[in-house]
Design a protein around this nucleic acid. Structure first.
Length: 839
RNA sequence: GGGCGCAUAGCUCAGCUGGGAGAGCGUCCGCUUCACGCGCGGAAGGUCACAGGUUCGAGCCCUGUUGCGCCCACCA
């Protein structure tokens, strides 16, 4: 064993051995209850980023711990076809060749996507292996593989037959770059400064004008009404009259609708049902015409007359100029508001009316809400439930059709008469009229539609696969906050609907790891940190350790120090093992042996640590678990191994064997406890330990033996450690131990700088003194101790003198103060006596 | 516009139901090269964002202010 743990050299061969064990696909033969996590399927376009690495570390820690605890663990593996993202990648390639996807046509485009996927689609899964993740690679799924496509179509058909999926002409969010609809959840609102115009519309058969306010004058060309509030006295006389839309001279009705805010702008609202979601609703209420002046290409349509063909932005200023020339603009002022942008491309969203497929989720949502409310599904941290409810309690129809090619093509065929035939297999004739001239809907489904069935489509739904039976429902889901509604909520709805049971019990919402300066980590900003680079520099264990330590309920800034600490931790463990292997008698069997205070202390600390770390992981408090583990491992090294050295080197063969057995026993348990978090280094050490022990990954997880708890030994050794620590930092000290102090031998062995270690019948506790030959130092130290004791005594007495404290505080608190007062009074007395003796 | 969260040592963060401010890193001092210099021990360093309030007592509870972050939302 080298003096330094070489992660780079150790990791790959170890991973190969794990894979060879063939247990990643679950192991029902082990007899334990299933424990299942579904990996949030990363985009095929993706590379492992910090979020994936954090999430992978958490999931693998849980999977490994449960596996060692005997559970039949399954970590579902796969990738998402990510429609829009893939289109972006391939269309960019095409642009470089001077082509568009339409030049290729659907079939050739899809061939090209599959070629690309064959070449690069495995990257991110390989990267999870580098992190040490024990995903079920043998059953890797892809949301576009044949079986999965079938599952998606099955879901569509079933929901269609229930009437929850339907086709309708509604207002949708249109992204001109994507040339597709996007869902409400894919719209990101950004602050924008535009101009608010007040425009005068003439009233028909009158000299009067009505003035409306708008930030989008170009939509005037598609206006089909003017609305005022029913209670607005300023306009009451106009309701029912006709206004004339400027530039196009269209006659439109003036209507009254309570949606209009009297106090905003002029109190009169132009209605453009074709280009504004509110106006759309108002238009539907009043039966207004739905006109469209903007096309899917983001340019003005024929309806725009002289402005036809102009991009929207350009049309806006041209229309403004035309209105101004006619003297119809009454006012222009800067106006700040939030404008919807495409989450993927950043383009301004164009609200348009379009014939699309929608999904209505009201009935699906009710049981999903109930699952959270009743506590069957728990969010960690719990505050994230509000994100879930805020969306789930206010659901609107989900536009599921996308005008893309890469994705699950909608399984609906139309005959020339417009009848719909819905089927999983291509039908030969129209269900309604028998026509054989069928054409399939060209659109594909929203990527999140297929993601919603990830927990069960991956393991065989809708078949009767035994894996489906065994591994659904799952247990834990860990993911990022921004997809609680896009994904988590929808999985819950679909899981309940199609499997009759929630897909998981615990939803862990990860911290977002920000760049060191607090900005968002992003490749394009150049603020990203590549987790694989960390793996190369520090090792996978160090990376996992650091990420777990950074995991938190709130967002954290990336700190490389946490990763390098993980590297030191792994090296420390490696060297502790190296000491045991080279210095101890490893022919003895590992056993909780030795009755010295140090022996009992380390076993007691180990039992406490085991229980605490497992408890923390059970509660998903990974950062705290890592800290507790770290503290114990360093205590073990700094004190138990140090205490063992003289005993191993001594002549007492019995002591030598006992210490060796105890060292081995403790080390084995530390390795098992550490393994879920730092699997590589622990497995590497395990291989060096004597005997044929198989893989640590499959070793049974150690129980915390409560009989090993020994508060007296812990207190004694703690006192010894404190005294020795003091002695190490100060030359020429004298250590005074109480008569019969249990850990006296430990103090004598570890305090080389103490000039004297003496037992004193009068000493109440271990005392560190300056050496007798320098009374001034002794005096100074005693003075310091006395001042401290006096201050404590004074504080306790002051509290007890406060009548309101003694009457109002809980009795236990008061008793505690009394005890303190008594203790410090004694200590003050003792110290004063010592000082008198010195003089 | 509504909601949620965060502001604690130079840095990254802990501080659970209110009773003497913590860890790791960094800095400084000492030790040590016989498992580990990715080592050992110690020390310095904080009016717990600000202002009020409740309480015998507040980092923790309440109100407000400031600064950050996030989520939700169709006010022209």
């Amino acid at each position: 064993m080298d003096a330094r743990y070489d992660a780079a050299a150790a990791e790959q061969p170890i991973f190969a051995r794990w894979e060879a064990a063939g247990v990643f696909a679950g192991r029902p033969e082990a007899g334990g209850a299933p424990f299942v996590i579904a990996l949030p399927p990363p985009n095929v376009t993706g590379e492992l980023h910090m979020g994936h690495a954090l999430n992978g570390s958490i999931q693998d820690t849980l999977i490994r711990l449960r596996r060692m605890q005997g559970r039949d663990t399954l970590w579902i593996c796969g990738t998402d076809h990510s429609g829009i993202a893939v289109h972006a990648v391939i269309e960019k390639q095409l642009r470089a060749e001077g082509l568009t996807r339409f030049d290729l046509g659907r079939e050739r485009f899809l061939e090209r996507v599959w070629e690309w996927r064959a070449a690069t689609g495995a990257t991110i899964i390989q990267q999870f292996k580098r992190l040490g993740c024990t995903l079920d690679y043998d059953h890797e799924r892809f949301t576009m593989d044949d079986g999965y496509v079938r599952s998606v179509l099955e879901m569509f058909v079933r929901l269609y037959r229930k009437g929850w999926i339907y086709r309708d002409n509604r207002m949708i969010n249109w992204c001109t770059t994507c040339a597709s609809t996007i869902s409400d959840l894919e719209v990101r609102y950004e602050h924008a400064v535009d101009t608010l115009f007040e425009v005068r519309y003439r009233i028909k058969d009158s000299d009067e004008f009505v003035t409306v306010a708008t930030v989008r004058p170009e939509t005037i060309l598609a206006d089909t009404g003017v609305a005022v509030h029913p209670d607005d006295d300023r306009y009451r006389h106009l309701v029912g009259r006709t206004a004339i839309v400027p530039l196009v001279d269209r006659e439109v009705p003036i209507i009254a609708d309570p949606y209009v805010k009297m106090e905003f702008g002029t109190g009169a609202l132009k209605i453009t049902p074709g280009h504004d979601p509110n106006d759309f609703e108002i238009g539907r209420r009043h039966g207004l015409l739905e006109l469209s002046a903007i096309g899917y290409d983001g340019r003005m349509s024929e309806l725009a007359g002289e402005f036809a063909g102009l991009p929207v932005g350009e049309a806006r200023s041209k229309v403004r100029d035309a209105l101004f020339a006619l003297g119809l603009i009454r006012k222009e002022e800067p106006y700040e508001h939030e404008v919807g942008h495409c989450d993927r491309t950043g383009d301004r969203i164009e609200p348009l009316i379009s014939l699309q497929w929608f999904m209505q989720m009201d009935e699906l949502a009710a049981p999903a809400n109930e699952a959270v409310r009743s506590g069957r599904v728990r969010f960690h941290p719990k505050t994230q439930e509000s994100t879930y409810y805020s969306w789930m309690l206010n659901l609107r129809p989900w536009c599921v059709s996308r005008q893309l090619w890469w994705g699950h093509q909608i399984p609906v065929w139309y005959c020339p008469d417009g009848h719909q035939t819905v089927a999983i297999e291509t039908p030969s004739a129209c269900e309604t009229c028998g026509s054989d001239r069928l054409e399939r809907d060209p659109d594909v489904l929203d990527t999140w539609f297929s993601s919603a069935l990830w927990p069960f489509a991956t393991i065989g739904w809708p078949g009767d696969d035994e894996r489906l039976e065994r591994y659904y429902p799952g247990h834990v889901l860990t993911t990022a906050r921004d997809i609680i509604n896009l994904w988590v909520a929808r999985m819950m709805m679909m899981g309940i609907e199609f499997m009759g049971e929630i897909p998981f019990e615990d939803v862990i919402i990860n911290a977002t790891i920000q760049a060191a300066d607090g900005r968002r980590m992003s490749k394009s900003l150049g603020t990203g940190v590549d987790p694989l680079d960390l793996v190369r520099r520090f090792g996978a264990d160090a990376t996992r350790y650091g990420l777990l330590k950074m995991s938190s309920t709130q967002d954290v800034r990336f700190a490389e120090g946490a990763i390098s600490e993980g590297g030191r931790f792994a090296n420390k463990l490696w060297n502790a093992a190296r000491f045991v292997i080279t210095q101890a008698d490893i022919s003895v069997a590992a056993a909780p042996a030795g009755e010295e205070p140090a022996d009992r202390w380390v076993r007691s600390r180990l039992a406490a640590t085991l229980a605490e770390v497992v408890g923390l992981i059970d509660r998903y408090e990974f950062a705290a678990a890592v800290k507790v583990l770290y503290a114990f491992v360093f205590d073990f090294c700094d004190w138990y191994i140090e205490a063992a050295k003289p005993r191993l080197a001594g002549d007492d063969e019995g002591a030598r064997r006992a210490v060796s057995a105890n060292l081995l026993w403790t080390l084995e348990r530390i390795l098992a406890l550490t393994h879920p978090m730092c699997p590589f280094v622990t497995e590497a050490i395990w291989e060096h330990l004597p005997g044929d022990r198989g893989l640590l990954m499959l070793a049974p997880f150690p129980q915390a033996v409560s009989e090993h708890r020994d508060p007296a030994a812990e207190a004694d050794v703690r006192a010894a450690i404190d005294a020795v620590s003091q002695a190490r930092s100060t030359p020429d000290v004298r250590l005074v131990l109480p008569q019969g102090f249990a850990a006296a031998a430990l103090v004598r062995a570890l305090a080389p700088r103490a000039t004297q270690v003496v037992e004193d019948a009068d000493a109440a506790a271990v005392v560190v003194e300056a050496a007798a030959e320098d009374p001034a130092l002794v005096r100074a130290r005693l003075d310091e101790q006395l001042a401290h004791a006096r201050a404590e005594l004074e504080r306790a007495r002051a509290m007890l003198a406060n009548e309101r404290f003694t009457t109002k505080a809980p009795a236990a608190k008061v008793d505690e103060e009394r005890a303190k007062a008594a203790r410090f009074a004694t200590e003050v007395g003792e110290l004063e006596a010592r000082l008198r003796d010195l003089v």
